[in-house]
Design a binder for these strands. Structure first.
Lengths: 120, 120
DNA sequence: CGGTATCCTCGGAGATACTG
DNA sequence: CAGTATCTCCGAGGATACCG
């Protein structure tokens, strides 16, 4: 985890949400409680190590709640915290934006050729 | 750039926004046109290579517009596209959420100890 | 079952130098 | 000034094995 220069809140959230798994985990956890093994099944390509690591990161950030149940076999459940729940619609908004702007994003900048002007 | 399994829009945006620089560049570009060298000055720690690389990624995604001016010395300007402009408030919302929920995020899950229950 | 530790590898990212 | 190419290196992340 690389140190940040500034204390910019955007840098800080992105530090937590960056990468392939955080938002995916959010996505699966918004349906409700999931066990560790459930999350592995939801994301077949995540490695055992990465999953624990990313869940820990989200836990430390106060986005997910980890609950352990003693006994054998071991059992651990993950939920979104209230704060984490509030994050979900913001992530969804990003996904919506991505879809809605698809035409605009791929159109703009290809047809408009402002380039090749002479500078002083 | 790792391939995605699914075509989930959230995975796709995060692929573009993940990392340290994309949101920072968005932040600096929302003030208006910036030259390459301006952006280097804004982010003293980004390497020459990373900056071009990240700008290209944002350009391909249709978030920034790159305009070149022929002549010596070379001159290249970067702007947010209309679509990119629409992304800014969504990123800001994430930053706001991060600040607003700070207490909730750090409080929840430390005081509440649901753990240590017996399973069957 | 869930977590941690160890090892190993592969590619992301810096430094440097050259071109238009 | 902006971009690309080459080389290098460090560490993120996979595989494996063992513990509670």
């Amino acid at each position: 985890m690389k140190e940040l220069v500034s204390r910019c809140p955007i840098e800080e959230v992105m530090q937590v949400l960056s990468g392939r798994w955080p938002t995916l985990l959010l996505y699966y956890l918004k349906d409700g409680t999931k066990r560790f093994s459930d999350l592995r099944r939801d994301n077949p390509t995540v490695s055992h190590k990465m999953l624990t690591q990313e869940l820990r990161k989200l836990e430390k950030a106060g986005i997910v709640q980890r609950t352990t149940f003693e006994g054998y076999p071991l059992r651990v459940e993950y939920d979104l915290t209230p704060a984490g729940l509030g994050l979900v619609p913001l992530i969804d908004a990003l996904g919506d934006w991505w879809e809605e702007t698809e035409d605009a994003r791929l159109g703009t900048g290809r047809l408009i050729e402002r380039a090749v002007q002479a500078s002083t």
